Computed example of a mutant assay.
Amino acid sequence: MTFSLVARCAETGMFGVAVSSSSPAVAARCAYARAGVGAVSSQNVTDPTLGPLALDLMEGGMSAAQAVAQVQAQGRFIEYRQVLVVDAAGRTAIHSGPNSLGIFTEAHGTDVVAAGNMLQNEGVPQAIVTAFEQAEGHLGDRLIAAMRAGLTAGGEMGPVHSAGMKLVDKVAWPVADLRCDWTEDCPVENIATAWEVYKPQLDAYVQRALDPREAPSYGVPGDE
């Protein structure tokens, strides 16, 4: 009931996850990323413990493939899970359990891996990867382009209702964590609109956290 990608920006070292689903609040359960470590999407009958586990394993020195192998060894009911991983070197790995729902498949690229379940067709993940690799600009822009391509290629078997995008950079918290938890419209486009608003302010929000004395003003009432 989900399609997603995890990716690394080779120029900046930033990591990102983007995900969409017919289920509500998909990003709350599926999207995980840690600055300097990697990004994970844990989906299909989701076990939310697997994302942090994979990140802990990579932070401890494992590659993406080693982390996925350990997740397979430690995870409960792993035959129902899909776990996508990209590590600090841009290496990718994925586990898709045989009990994943409907059409489930995956595609790997440079610094990116995509996968889904209950897909309209087997070509959706490759369309996501191709769009990510062809897109330019900020990692967030490339993730949005990839998710749009996934929808254009067929997306999920039914209509999607939620989506999310998470970005991590050099600080301990996500520098962007945008979510649409439910809509009858297109949740990917809702995230794209939110990103258009948030992107120009991203650096300022980080600066405000690090040292508000140097933060720019946005002219809100009472802010002089």
Rank of each mutant, 00 (worst) to 15 (best):
G140M: 08
E59I: 00
A93T: 11
E59R: 15
K166Q: 11
A153Q: 13
V40E: 05
K170R: 14
G61E: 03
L57S: 09
V26A: 09
T105I: 00
V71E: 09
T105S: 15
A69W: 03
A67P: 14
M165P: 13
Q120M: 08
C186Y: 00
S23I: 00
V71L: 09
D169W: 02
A35H: 14
G51D: 02
R76N: 07
P159E: 06
Y198D: 05
N117R: 05
S217H: 13
C180A: 06
A39F: 08
D141A: 07
D56T: 10
G219Q: 00
V112T: 11
R148C: 04
G154H: 07
Y80L: 14
V171M: 10
F15V: 05
V26K: 00
L119K: 01
V197D: 08
I94N: 03
S162P: 14
G158L: 11
S42V: 08
W195H: 09
E224C: 04
S96N: 12
D111C: 14
G36Q: 06
N190F: 01
G13F: 11
A7G: 06
A107E: 05
D56H: 10
K199P: 12
A39H: 11
L57A: 10
G154C: 05
V113E: 04
P125M: 02
L50H: 10
G36I: 04
Q70T: 12
H161G: 01
R34A: 13
G137R: 05
L53I: 02
V85R: 08
G61T: 03
N99T: 02
Y218I: 05
G164C: 05
